[in-house]
Design a protein around this nucleic acid. Structure first.
Length: 257
DNA sequence: ATGTCTCAGCGTCTGAGA
C-alpha cells in the first residue's frame, strides 16, 4: 500500500498537476495540504472521476487538508486537532483507510519569529503531540502524514545560513518535532535513508529548485506497530520541476499488506 | 532588504502569507 503526502499549494490551481502525478504514481492514499479552497470548492467530483474518494476540511484562502483513497471513501474520524476550541484553522483531518488511521497534517509555518505566529506553531505542535499519544495508545496502526513545517536536523536543509532566523529550523521548532517523534514514532523517510540529504520543498524564490536548495518539511510518522510493514520511502522530486508546480513535491511510503 | 507566487478586495494595484 502506497501512502503519500503532498502540499499541493491550491488544489484547484494545481489540479491537473495533482491528477497527472496520481495517474503515474497510483497512490492508494494521498494526504493533501494547503487546499486553499472552501469546502464547497473542493474538486471532489473530479477526484472521484479519477477513481478516488475523499474527505476534506477546507478554508477560505488559506490552509485546508484532505485525505484521498483509491476506490473508496476514507471513514472520517476527526476534522480538527483537540486542545483549543478557539482554533478555527483547517490544519488537521483524520480518517480510517484500509485498517489504518491516517492523518493529514498542516502545521503552522510560524514566521515571523519570535511572535504570536511562532507561539501558535509551537502550541499547535504540542497539541499534535498530545493527540498523537492518545492515538498511539489506542493500539491502531497510524500514519501521521503532512507538512510539519519543520526541517528536523541540519541534514534536512541544504548547507546555508539564509534560513538562520526562519521558524522552520529554530531550535524550539526542532525540539517540538523531536518531542513528538519521541522514542515511539518512526520518521519513515529517515528510517529508510538514514544519512541522505532528502528534500520535499524548494522555495519559489532565488532559483532554489534549479540549485537544489531544498528542505525536508513533509514527513510520514508511523506508529511502532507498523515498523515491520515499511518497505520503501521516497520523494517524487520531478513533480517540483514541471510548469505551475507546487513548491513541495510528494513524499511517500510503501507498506507491506 | 531581497527574492517568487498567488489571492482577495473599498480592486486594473496593494498587502499578506507562505
Amino acid at each position: 500500500m502506497l501512502i503519500a503526502t503532498f502540499n499541493i499549494n491550491n488544489v484547484n490551481r494545481r489540479l491537473e498537476n495533482l491528477l497527472a502525478w496520481m495517474r503515474k504514481a497510483k497512490p492508494d492514499v494521498v494526504c493533501l495540504q494547503e487546499l486553499k479552497a472552501e469546502d464547497w470548492a473542493f474538486p471532489a467530483d473530479k477526484l472521484e472521476r479519477a477513481g478516488y474518494g475523499a474527505v476534506w476540511k477546507g478554508q477560505k484562502t488559506w490552509n485546508g487538508v484532505a485525505i484521498l483513497a483509491r476506490g473508496k471513501k476514507p471513514v472520517l474520524t476527526r476534522k480538527q486537532l483537540p486542545g483549543d476550541h478557539e482554533d478555527g484553522q483547517a490544519r488537521y483531518i483524520e480518517a480510517a483507510v484500509n485498517g489504518i488511521i491516517v492523518a493529514s497534517i498542516y502545521a503552522p509555518n510560524g514566521n515571523p519569529q519570535p511572535g504570536p505566529k511562532f507561539d501558535y506553531k509551537l502550541a499547535w505542535l504540542g497539541r499534535l503531540h498530545q493527540h498523537a499519544t492518545v492515538l498511539r495508545k489506542s493500539g491502531a496502526p497510524i500514519v501521521l502524514a503532512g507538512d510539519y513545517n519543520v526541517a528536523p536536523t541540519d541534514l534536512d536543509i541544504y548547507p546555508t545560513k539564509s534560513w538562520e532566523n526562519d521558524a522552520l529550523i529554530q531550535p524550539e521548532s526542532r525540539a517540538a518535532f523531536k518531542r513528538l517523534v519521541g522514542r515511539s514514532w518512526i520518521d519513515a523517510m529517515r528510517r529508510m535513508h538514514p544519512n541522505e540529504r532528502i528534500y520535499t520543498f524548494w522555495d519559489y524564490m532565488r532559483n532554489r529548485w534549479p540549485r537544489d536548495a531544498g528542505l525536508r518539511l513533509d514527513h510520514l510518522l508511523l506508529s511502532p506497530n507498523l515498523k515491520d510493514r515499511l518497505s520503501e520511502a521516497d520523494v517524487d522530486r520531478e513533480v517540483r520541476g514541471v510548469d505551475g508546480a507546487s513548491d513541495h513535491a510528494p513524499a511517500w511510503i510503501r507498506l507491506r499488506t
